[in-house]
Nucleic acid binder design. Structure first.
Length: 749
RNA sequence: GCGCGGUUAGCUCAGUUGGUAGAGCGGUUCGUUUACACCGAAAAGGUCGGGGGUUCAAGUCCCUCACCGCGCACCA
């Protein structure tokens, strides 16, 4: 940096204000100043008398990002909103706690390491063995965690790092095992043979919520099946089909009776088919007749259960046809399809083909393959099973009441114990609960929370005894369940597992329930609902009082940001170029609650200019008030009193917006006032007075501007913490009401 | 199929209980180098998706249609 030239008549003000605001020069050291002060931790604020020990609390958990992830614009929006809320409440006299953490993201992290492993050594995790592989994943997670943590800090996030939690650290493991054991003892975690979503690629089950339907075009085949015609896109599953189903009221098939047997020619020769009358068959659809494959279809499974039918596995866990396929056994289903069609065609059983049939296929949204339903023995959380609520501080149910998890989840929102905003998400939440089925929580991956259940087996392998506890049983003839838990199981405990539960710690007593849960609407079901489930059942408290859902960050044309579109904005680039404050504002202003937000570089650049505006206003005020004499008696004019009153009004508007979670309106109100009112009008109109000869008038105006500026910095700080704090640190002592702007308290609260 | 959003200035979006439309960015003209060219001033730009209704009064409430987007379910 070249030395700045002394400017003629330039008053003696800090040199940095003579240059434009350069965020990159100050942000890291300002963050360090905050962090070193210890005031991200409310205990330190109490110890130093910034807030009283009896002050109200404001607590929030950070939705923990994946430990191996990197910061994207969605995170940036989340951090901007949450940090603004936290700083606001910290400056309003609350004992304010925002808890950081990271998530193990079991499936994602494991598959990443598996890929790396295969690339480097051509080995699979099975070649390496469970323990060695887990060590590798652990090391990878440990190594990459600092990336996301440092990037989180870049945004200015005032998180209490002394309370940092990781979903797989010892304390959280203990909480997870305890939670599992308690739910097991309440009869809410059960093991059962049910139809589940099986991902043949990742070799694990996934929950219903993790399924993503993808549109696909395939041929649709019509086959002769005895006297009937059946349609299917999946001929390769049809080997075992011996039940033919039609609606009981379908006039066309009156002559066939339920249970009647008929001989039909099929893929591997003649079989005896059985007529089933069931209302699941839609007479409007195709011929109104279908055959069923209960092992690989949830709907068919239900029909089979209703009529007590036999069912058989056709496809194995890797997508290979089993012996039932006869000559095609051992084929992968992908290749088998055309062969089955060929066989049936040669037999003259192929009636016609619609080449372009558009339908949805279920895929694993966690980057997996096409999901194949399978019947498997798995662990489930039973959402419709009544149980006795052991402990309750809830409004609608008392300790000892008999309830179901579904009822609990619904009641706390219905009775207003939890507010969900924007309002429309309440309906979406209820809708989800109504359709909710038992939650499959066991996964066949290795990285994650091991299920705390042990079995003692007979010589033939059948289970003699099952043991569920936090610690392993003493004797060594027990064998632990090999599966791990769904990531969202541990995430569901997050509001209280981060506060020391199952111990009744001070933190838990003080900060639970948390005040606000802020997150994207895309994880309302995955996470928000699961936290409500876990918290009400296990602690008898709601996890939070208010849910605030924000939208997705999109590009300037409203498209999703994706690599293939090349429209990704990297928050770290934005921070470097425009500053963290500008990045924060650009994801807050214009983002109405629950609505997606469009982002462009131009917008961010605009808010960089705003940061610079604050900078230059400071220069102006320091320049023109350098000779201000604080001891001289001052009388403000009526006009000046009005300016102060107007500012107070702006402040209360901003406060009201923040409390109503309209940060977009709050931030914009600050912007409008500072630029259009304070800079363009008040400062401009002050120039003649400040440059004039009337000493009394000048003194009054100087005092007015200094007082206003003090208040404006306080109001602006939650939105633009870096530039305001940097300015604050270079103001004369007399203009500051505390050493750190971050903990300056709003007056009159 | 069920449900939910959206459609307001060239672009991105606000508009809280109904009272004659706002911001940012962009564009136009002019000015300013003594806080800031990361500046200021001025003006331009909208029959608030179409149609109907309620009302003294509708962007706002009701009905209806169209288009865009999303969620859930179904998918023989």
């Amino acid at each position: 940096m070249s030395e700045s030239k002394p400017v003629a008549n330039e008053p003696n003000i800090p040199e940095l204000f003579l240059r434009p605001y350069a965020p990159a020069e100050y942000e890291d050291s300002i963050y360090k100043l905050w962090e070193d002060s210890g005031y991200f931790n409310p205990d330190a604020c109490v110890a130093d008398g910034i807030v009283t020990p009896e002050a109200k609390t404001f607590s929030m958990v950070l939705p923990p990002p994946n430990v191996t992830g990197t910061l994207h614009m969605g995170h940036a929006a989340m951090l901007a909103i949450e940090d603004t809320l936290v700083r606001f409440h910290r400056m309003h006299g609350k004992r304010t706690l925002w808890i950081p953490g990271t998530d193990s993201a079991a499936i994602a992290t494991q598959s990443r390491v598996e890929k790396d492993l295969y690339k480097a050594t051509k080995q699979s995790r099975h070649d390496l063995g469970r323990e060695a592989f887990l060590e590798r994943v652990q090391a990878f997670a440990e190594e990459s965690k600092n990336t996301i943590i440092n990037q989180t800090k870049k945004m200015g996030s005032s998180l209490d790092w002394s309370r940092y939690a990781y979903t797989l650290d010892e304390q959280r493991q203990f909480a997870v095992s305890t939670a599992f054991q308690r739910l097991y003892e309440l009869g809410l975690i059960v093991r059962g043979n049910r139809i589940v979503n099986w991902d043949p690629k990742m070799q694990t089950t996934v929950s219903d919520d993790e399924i993503e339907y993808v549109e696909q075009t395939d041929p649709f085949y019509y086959f002769k099946y005895g006297p009937f015609t059946i349609g299917t896109v999946r001929p390769e599953t049809k080997f075992g089909d011996k039940y033919v189903v039609m609606h009981p009221d379908d006039e066309r098939y009156k002559e066939y009776a339920h249970g009647q047997q008929i001989e039909v020619e099929w893929i591997n020769g003649p079989i005896t088919a059985i007529i089933i009358k069931d209302e699941a068959a839609d007479p409007e659809l195709g011929s109104g007749v279908m055959t069923i494959t209960p092992w690989h279809s949830a709907v068919d499974f239900e029909i089979a259960k209703r009529h007590n039918l036999e069912y058989e596995q056709i496809i194995d866990e890797r997508g290979i046809l089993l012996d039932i396929a006869g000559p095609l056994a051992g084929e992968h289903i992908k290749k088998a399809r055309s062969k089955v069609v060929e066989i049936l065609e040669q037999k003259g059983l192929l009636e016609k083909v619609d080449e372009k049939y558009v339908h949805n296929v279920a895929t694993n949204s966690r980057g997996g393959g096409i999901v194949e339903p399978q019947i498997k023995e798995q662990w489930f959380v039973a959402v419709d099973t009544p149980f006795t609520l052991p402990h309750s501080e809830l409004q609608s149910y008392k300790s000892g009441d008999v309830v179901t998890l579904k009822q609990l989840m619904r009641s706390v929102v219905e009775d207003g114990s939890i507010e969900i905003g924007p309002e429309r998400f309440k309906r979406i939440y209820y809708n989800w609960i109504d359709k909710l089925e038992d939650w499959c929580i066991s996964r066949q991956i290795w990285y994650g929370h091991r299920i705390p259940v042990w079995y003692r087996r007979d010589d033939d392998g059948s289970i003699l005894e099952t043991y569920c506890a936090v610690d392993a049983p003493k004797s060594d003839d027990w064998e632990q369940d090999p599966d791990t838990l769904d990531t969202w199981f541990s995430s569901g405990l997050w509001t209280f597992s981060t506060l020391g539960w199952p111990e009744t710690s001070d933190d838990y007593t003080t900060y639970h329930p948390t005040n606000v849960l802020e997150t994207g609407y895309d994880i309302l079901f995955f996470w928000v609902a699961r936290m409500i489930l876990m918290s009400t059942a296990l602690t008898g408290q709601v996890p939070f009082r208010h849910v605030y859902l924000h939208g997705m960050v999109r590009d300037e044309q409203g498209r999703k940001m994706s690599k293939s579109l090349g429209n990704i904005l990297d928050p770290l680039d934005m921070i470097e170029k425009y500053g963290a404050d500008a990045t924060r504002l650009s994801v807050i202003v214009g983002a109405a609650p629950g609505n997606d937000i469009s982002l462009s570089k131009d917008k961010t650049r605009g808010y960089k200019h705003f940061a610079n505006k604050l900078w230059n206003i400071t220069r102006f005020i320091l320049t023109y008030t350098e000779d201000y004499d604080a001891t001289a008696p001052v009388t403000l004019s009526a006009e000046e009193m009005q300016i102060k009153a107007d500012l107070a009004k702006v402040q209360s508007e901003v406060d009201a917006h923040v409390l109503a979670f309209r940060l977009d309106l709050a931030a914009d109100a600050v912007y409008q006032y500072v630029w259009k009112e304070f800079a363009d009008k008040i400062l401009e109109e002050s120039k003649p007075i400040l440059q004039g000869d009337e000493v009394a008038l000048r003194l009054a105006r100087q005092q007015l501007l200094r007082e206003c500026w003090h208040d404006i910095l306080i109001i602006s700080h939650p939105f633009m913490p870096y530039v305001t704090e940097t300015i604050w640190q270079h103001l004369p002592e007399a203009m500051r009401s505390s050493k750190l702007l971050m903990v300056a308290q709003v007056e009159g609260q």
